[in-house]
Amino acid sequence: MSEQQVSQDLQGRVALVTGASRGIGRATALELGRRGATVIGTATSESGAQKITEGLQAAGVAGEGMALNVTDAASVETVLKAIAEKYSAPLILVNNAGITKDNLMMRMKEEEWDDVMETNLKSVYRMSKACLRAMTKARWGRIINISSVVATMGNMGQANYCAAKAGMEGFTRSLARELGSRNITVNAVAPGFIATDMTEVLPEEQKEFLVKQVPLGRLGQPEEIAAAVGFLASEPAAYITGETLHVNGGMNMR
């Protein structure tokens, strides 16, 4: 991306991005940094956290990577405490961490259902709750949940993933209503098919088929999702809440 003049309106804010070691999370962490925020990116492993720290440093972004298991309440508490002590409590939260455990319904194991619900949906409850006190006190906050186009379209073999993402969008609207009076906005971004490790594993045939459904005729780039997240975190987006911003090359126009 070329060196453009970018508003530094997130200067002084601490942003927390889960699942930031690669793909959309990584691009989002860098984008928020570019807008002036101090960024804490999380990964499940220490080596992933180290990679995030290096990536932020290389881009001249303040902050660091931290190891966090979003399915573990104790881990969430430890990391939030560490951030508050070293920086200040995050007022921007991007719930991006997610997994897929695809299977046709008739073959889907309970474990595959539960794992996806825990990591993709319950984590959003857990992380949001952990960040809310500081946001209500500050009378300013941004929660941005990374959903998916399949939350509204549905997708074969992804009943668990689609249910979790649709749940996330309902959560987004409820929380937006609860927290509006505290000047906290809660939104979702629903990416279409983006060139990340998550879509890389799909068979070539399926990828070709997918691209045919996209009016713009290509997969999206992680940076194109990050730009939407950056906008929702910014001051000019202050009047947008409870919304799901679709970034999908036109594959799911409504």
Binding site: R133, T136, E178, L179, S181, R182
Partner: peptide, 11 residues
């Protein structure tokens, strides 16, 4: 106070 105020107050 509204309901959110009372929760915040208790916290």
């Amino acid at each position: 106070a509204d309901s959110l105020d009372t929760v915040e107050l208790v916290m």
